[in-house]
């Protein structure tokens, strides 16, 4: 299956990744190649097969509802690009 330039622009918007104009043709070509590889799956016989989500079909382990983590806000925020008064700063969202 081939993708169009518009498809790639739409996918990159969904993925929140800016793609430079001059790179779009390359992504159209490369993603088309990967989809060509993936299209081989159409020849597999998958009726009546249960999808496999986990190699050992384990279910989610539950834990006791107890607080186990300490507050490490300052340590974590030391890695942030911009913080103020314990809050992460981003450009204004609501005017």
């Amino acid at each position: 299956m081939d993708l169009s330039i518009e498809d790639v622009k739409k996918i990159s918007a969904l993925a929140r990744i800016e793609i430079e104009q001059q790179d779009i043709d390359g992504y159209v070509r490369d993603l088309g190649g990967i989809l060509g590889l993936v299209d081989q799956l159409n020849s597999a016989e998958t009726d009546e097969v249960t999808p496999m989500a986990h190699p050992m079909d384990q279910v989610q382990r539950l834990r006791v509802d107890q607080v186990t983590e300490q507050d490490q806000r300052e340590l974590f925020q030391s890695q942030a690009p911009q913080v103020e008064a314990g809050l992460y700063l981003v450009p204004k969202v609501i005017e």
Partner: peptide, 26 residues
């Protein structure tokens, strides 16, 4: 905010990582 997300990710990830994120998003 949208510009922050898209440009930070566009600049921070290399071509192969972007390809796989786009493939997975699709």
């Amino acid at each position: 905010l949208l510009d922050l997300y898209t440009r930070s990710r566009g600049e921070g990830f290399g071509a192969e990582v972007k390809r796989r994120i786009l493939m997975g998003t699709y």
